[in-house]
């Protein structure tokens, strides 16, 4: 049994007096790809903000054996919990190469950063071809690659990928999913937060289904895919 990397227990979080997340339990183990799926307003973004510690909350939150409860966003990032944000949030006016370097902003040591660059360019040959191009001028799929590459430059233990498939052609999404599998095979754990449940379950080991701030279903990707409720609600089958 592999080790638990991220765990939320009895987690409550929200805005003002209103809790969006109610008594949430959630676990990601080392080396897994976990899908967190749910429609608009299910609380996925609130959960991600809790994880990055940009939103307070109540309950237990541990990552790599340490409580994150009192940590600042910067410390959380440094401990290896790195986001690929929804909407990519690239530095539009900067080149692809500079975007990647910004991912390594908190890291020291040129040799290690160069090694990461080489690895990212190996994973995304397209980014190497375009390394001097302004990131804002690339296609959506290429921008998503750049955002993923930038996150990898931070040397993550856990990669949080938020709404990766949004607005991208299915064939591009498939390519990106394949790359996520490769990333996992290199030892990086992946948490895939998606509205597109079908895409997410394609490569995930396990999944959680979130509805109005609570986990309503969890299980292996196969179980979820074959679950009659989910097939009806999300896949329209």
């Amino acid at each position: 049994m592999s080790n638990v990397l991220l765990q939320l227990n009895n987690w409550y979080a929200g805005y003002g007096d209103v809790d969006v997340l109610n008594n949430l339990h959630f676990t990601v183990k080392e080396g897994e790809i976990v899908a967190l799926v749910g429609s608009n307003g299910a609380g996925k973004t609130t959960l991600l903000r809790s994880l990055s510690r940009t939103l307070k909350g109540r309950g237990d939150i541990t990552f790599a054996g340490r409580s994150l409860y009192d940590e600042t966003p910067e410390k959380v990032f440094e401990s290896g919990l790195v986001q690929v944000p929804e909407g990519r949030l690239l530095f539009d006016q900067m080149s692809v190469h500079e975007n990647l370097l910004m991912g390594a902003y908190r890291r020291q040591g040129k040799a290690a950063i160069d090694a990461s660059l080489e690895r990212v360019y190996g994973l995304f040959p397209k980014l190497y071809e375009r390394r001097q191009q302004r990131s804002g001028s690339m296609s959506g799929g290429e921008q998503q690659m750049c955002a993923m590459g930038r996150a990898l430059m931070a040397n993550p233990k856990l990669l949080l990928v938020d709404e990766m498939s949004l607005g991208l052609a299915p064939v591009i999404v498939d390519q990106l999913l394949e790359i996520l599998s490769t990333i996992r095979n290199e030892g990086i754990t992946v948490l895939l937060v998606e509205q597109d449940i079908y895409a997410a379950l394609e490569i995930a080991d396990r999944g959680y289904v979130m509805v109005t701030g609570a986990i309503t279903q969890s299980g292996s990707a196969d179980e979820l895919r074959n679950d009659p409720h989910i097939r009806e609600a999300y896949l329209g089958l």
Binding site: Q83, L89, F91, D92, M94, M102, Y105
Partner: peptide, 23 residues
């Protein structure tokens, strides 16, 4: 320079800069 890049990055996209550890 690293600082120059961080300054430009902060100007272009504050949320993203924070996300990658820029204070």
């Amino acid at each position: 320079t690293r600082i120059g890049r961080a300054i430009r990055a902060t100007a272009q996209n504050l949320s993203a800069a924070r996300l990658y550890g820029v204070n």
